[in-house]
Design a protein around this nucleic acid. Structure first.
Length: 877
RNA sequence: GGGCGCUUAGCUCAGUUGGUUCAGAGCACUUGGUUUACACCCAAGGGGUCGGGGGUUCGAAUCCCUCAGCGCCCACCA
């Protein structure tokens, strides 16, 4: 009686979230129980919740809540990532709005702004997660730039450097001219773009001849230091050993020969620009060519760009084509599709650039991490990702870990001299000074002589330690928390970051714990809209998760997200799913309201029908419990939800409650009421991971609960004997009831009007559900007869025939027609079975079970035909 | 260019080793019902030659080949 007439999701959600928090139910401490741990994939600290997070965190919360109910010490560690590039870009943009240029700030000043920004906008996303019901251990909230996590990063860097795995190298790297930093290969996204292929003619030095090359990047002629032809290309024999003159620039460059050149592409002549193309760099190294870098950091041209100095590369491309055309150096232009590397974060077009950067050697580190997945030490769900993972790991390249950014962990390398190699790597300035003194033998060095490397580390260089560093396992490898919670159990994340993050965490796990960081990796799909477009802020096709929550309730959204989310498959998000979710919540609420509204009488005996119904449901419930176990063990979340959904909606609400419901105005007997309450309680337990709020709300209402009692920390229902015969008999009863309903509909007999049902049984018949058939069929009587009932409509289930006498004339013609159709269908069916059984090869080859089944089919069909025939005979008189 | 995956009802998807009830589920749809928890309800019902073609088999949505369409990952061809 305590439930309101209508379910108010908002107030219920707030009430119970506060209650859970207040009672510390999300918090985990080391104890005697077995730990079940998940570390959250840390979202960007200043990010906001999007649909991908909703899906991801719903799944994590379902896993965590279920583990908690199953008696594990469940620990879900939340936190955020400093997101070096993304955050720095936001801060730079914000400063720009205020008229401040990053260049005019010192590192310290800039970092102050960045921290302000972080404090102001940071952690909003975690507050949003609370609205979703996420039961994270908020006392453990971590941030990749927390002191201990930062120290962990530095310690690891120093360690890897000392192991010889980190080195500094002058390499061609990916340069993001927008963020003005290098990127790792994984941060470059290649996009197909329609471009042009320009054919340019170069004069041959000292001759009245020209050669033509094809290029997509005419602006880089400023950096040309050679022309390359294939040594076997007879077309260009006359050019060998000669030199060419770069148009506009006038520079004389050699014509070299290399088999790298593709004879089929373009003209067979290639211009070589070692500073701005990886292949050209390799050619340059091989042939000792000059390297001329023509770009500034922002991808405008430098002084090598002559009169184009200071202009952007793409403007220069347009202008230089005009100039080349005017001097007759542009031969022709063709359309050309090519893949352009763009920055994952800023979307800027990447410029290959030579520079000094820090790298981590990956090959050896990757080995145990590869084996772990191939040997199923770590399970990727779904398994199709194993191949992708293997391919990447087997071809892993050194990781560029330095970024020309300030927001992040500054590289702990300290320069004490002018030479490239005049540096030491140490966890602190003091240690660095000691090391520098040792290395140089110069004891008069002071702190002032040390200059720390300006660069920061790639964000992923801190998040790859996440499952260890959140438990402080890097700094204190033997503390009791890391030993207890590590390895964690499940990781739930998007496949997009399989290499960025997952693979590297596995690597770090083996390197720093000698053990896997988690056992299962559940890879979710991408959330897309109905047009299959990825939901993103820039496309504007993503609903605001908080709006959805206020509209459908957190429970509703959770169900909606989970209804269609097979692991690894994209989720076609449709608001209708949320509608279905909140309808389900409403159904649970109303069913509970019905039960709690019942008047209970202690002086009534439990009717036979209720007793049977309760026993049946208990078996059904246990059966579903096993199915759930199976689905969960395979991480089939949608299936687990659907099995629960159908159990509650169909078996519990549509069948059980209808079976035990007292007739209008009458009280329910005490025994049945108690049984139903117990059943409801168990239902709520298996519902709780999916719909935590409504389930807690009702659980708290259906009995007097102690102050510290709560569904969230109760226990998962126990399995017990399943009476399969009850389940089977119920199915038969349900078919009979359905038959009655069909006839009522056909003959327009309203439910209120009672009818008689006669059963002509040709085989042993179990009467367990008779009382229920009577109740749900609203029968005045249920009789077993030995002869057909005259003047009655009939229907058949298996080999039994059921008769309902109807007042008024029966349409004999119609009945005959109906029976004839059924007969001819059954005869056709029997014929196909006969054919099969007469086929010797089938009888010889098929397993016995299959043949036995066919024989059973044959017998059933024959019995049914006999029944139909005799019915027809009696109808025809 | 290489690799992986997908194509089953209007929509989103299940279909484990080929074998009763395997051609399914949820939603949507149609029809009927409902002063007695819920129209976010109840009941009944329609709907698919399992992308096309070929093959293996007594038997194929399931295995093989091939074609078509879609998606993803990886890769330095100007």
């Amino acid at each position: 009686m305590a439930l309101a007439a209508k379910y108010d999701a908002k107030s219920v959600e707030e009430k119970w979230y506060d209650y859970w928090m207040k009672n510390g139910y999300f918090h985990s401490e080391v104890d005697d129980r077995e730990a079940y741990t998940i570390v959250i994939p840390p979202p960007n600290v200043t990010g906001v919740l999007h649909m991908g997070h909703m899906l991801n965190n719903t799944i994590q919360d379902v896993l965590i809540r279920r583990a908690r109910l199953k008696g594990y010490n469940a620990c879900w560690v939340p936190g955020t990532d400093h997101a070096s590039i993304a955050t720095e870009a936001k801060v730079v943009a914000k400063l720009k709005d205020e008229g401040i240029d990053k260049k005019d700030l010192s590192r310290e000043q800039f970092l102050e702004h960045a921290w302000d920004w972080t404090h102001k906008h940071g952690g909003i996303i975690l507050e949003q997660l609370k609205k979703l019901g996420a039961s994270c251990d908020w006392e453990r909230t971590a941030f990749t730039m927390d002191d201990n996590l930062s120290s962990s990063v530095i310690k690891v860097f120093v360690d890897l450097y000392n192991k010889g795995r980190i080195y500094r190298g002058y390499r061609m790297v990916n340069w993001d001219p927008e963020a003005k930093t290098t990127l790792s290969d994984e941060e470059v996204v290649y996009e197909e773009k329609q471009g042009k292929l320009y054919y340019l003619s170069y004069k041959v030095e000292g001759e009245d001849e020209t050669l033509t090359i094809a290029t997509t990047r005419p602006e880089t002629i400023m950096g040309d230091t050679a022309i390359c032809i294939h040594p076997n290309d007879d077309r260009f024999n006359h050019l060998k050993g000669k030199k060419a003159i770069v148009p506009i620039v006038g520079r004389v460059i050699p014509i070299i020969e290399d088999e790298y050149v593709d004879l089929e592409f373009g003209t067979g002549c290639l211009k070589v620009t070692p500073a701005h193309d990886l292949n050209d760099k390799e050619l340059g190294d091989k042939h000792n060519l000059d390297v001329i870098d023509i770009f500034n950091d922002d991808a405008t041209l430098n002084s090598f760009g002559l009169h184009y100095e200071g202009k952007d590369r793409f403007i220069v491309r347009k202008e230089i084509i005009k100039e080349l055309e005017s001097i007759g150096a542009l031969v022709k232009t063709e359309d050309h599709m090519n893949k352009v590397g763009t920055s994952e974060r800023t979307k800027a077009i990447i410029e290959p650039k030579l520079s000094d950067q820090w790298f981590l050697k990956m090959k050896e580190l990757a080995k145990p991490a590869l084996d772990a997945v191939l040997d199923k030490e770590i399970h990727l769900v779904p398994e199709k990702f194993i191949n992708t993972y293997r391919h990447w790991m087997e071809n892993v390249r050194d990781w560029n870990i330095s970024r020309q950014l300030w927001w992040g962990h500054q590289i702990p390398a300290y320069y004490y001299g002018d030479g490239k190699e005049d540096f030491v790597v140490a966890a602190s300035r003091a240690e660095a000074l000691t090391l520098a003194k040792e290395k140089t033998g110069n004891t008069s060095l002071t702190d002032q002589d040390l200059i720390q490397d300006e660069d920061a580390l790639d964000t992923w260089f801190s998040s790859w330690l996440w499952p260890i560093s959140v438990f402080n396992g890097i700094l204190e490898p033997n503390n009791k928390e890391i030993n207890y919670y590590y390895p964690t159990n499940d990781l739930v994340t998007a496949p997009e970051i399989l290499f960025f993050w997952v693979a590297r965490m596995i690597i770090a796990g083996y390197e720093y714990r000698g053990e896997k960081p988690f056992t299962h990796v559940y890879l979710t799909g991408i959330v897309r809209d109905k047009q299959r477009r990825k939901m993103s802020k820039s496309l504007g096709n993503s609903p605001d998760p908080l709006d959805l929550i206020s509209q459908y309730g957190a429970d509703g959204i959770r169900v909606g997200m989970l209804l269609s989310s097979p692991a690894g498959n994209d989720l076609m998000f449709d608001e209708d799913l949320c509608k279905q979710g909140s309808a389900f919540v409403n159904k649970i609420f109303n069913a509970s309201r019905l039960i709690l509204g019942w008047e209970v009488a202690t002086d009534i005996e439990q009717p036979q029908s209720s007793k049977v119904a309760i026993q049946w449901y208990q078996s059904k419930f246990r059966q579903v419990l096993l199915i759930l176990e199976d689905h969960y063990s395979k991480y089939r979340m949608s299936d687990a939800l659907m099995a629960t959904y159908k159990l509650i909606w169909d078996d519990f609400c549509s069948w059980l409650l209808e079976m035990v419901k007292p007739s209008y105005g009458n009280p329910i007997d005490h025994k049945t009421y108690g049984d139903v309450i117990t059943i409801l309680e168990n239902n709520l337990k298996i519902l709780h991971p999916f719909v935590p709020f409504i389930s807690e709300e009702i659980w708290q209402q259906i009995a007097d609960r102690k102050e510290d009692e709560a569904l969230i920390v109760s226990d998962w229902p126990k399995t017990d004997a399943i009476h399969n015969h009850l389940i089977e008999e119920f199915e038969n009863a349900a078919a009979i009831i359905s038959g009655i309903r069909t006839i009522r509909k056909q003959k327009n007999i309203p439910f209120k009007e009672t009818i008689d049902l006669s059963i002509l049984n040709s085989e042993e018949f179990n009467m367990t559900f008779d009382s229920i058939i009577q109740k749900l069929g609203n029968l005045s009587s249920l009789n077993y007869v030995t002869e057909k009932v005259e003047g009655a409509i009939s229907f058949r289930i298996k080999s039994n025939e059921y008769f309902i006498p109807v007042s008024g004339a029966i349409n004999v013609e119609e009945e005959i027609k109906k029976l004839t159709e059924e007969l001819s269908y059954t005869e056709g069916f029997l014929k196909s079975v006969h054919k099969k059984l007469q086929n010797e090869r089938f009888v010889n080859n098929a397993p016995e079970q299959v043949i036995a089944n066919e024989r059973k089919k044959q017998a059933d069909a024959e019995a049914k035909i006999a029944t139909l025939k005799s019915s027809l005979d009696s109808l025809r008189g």
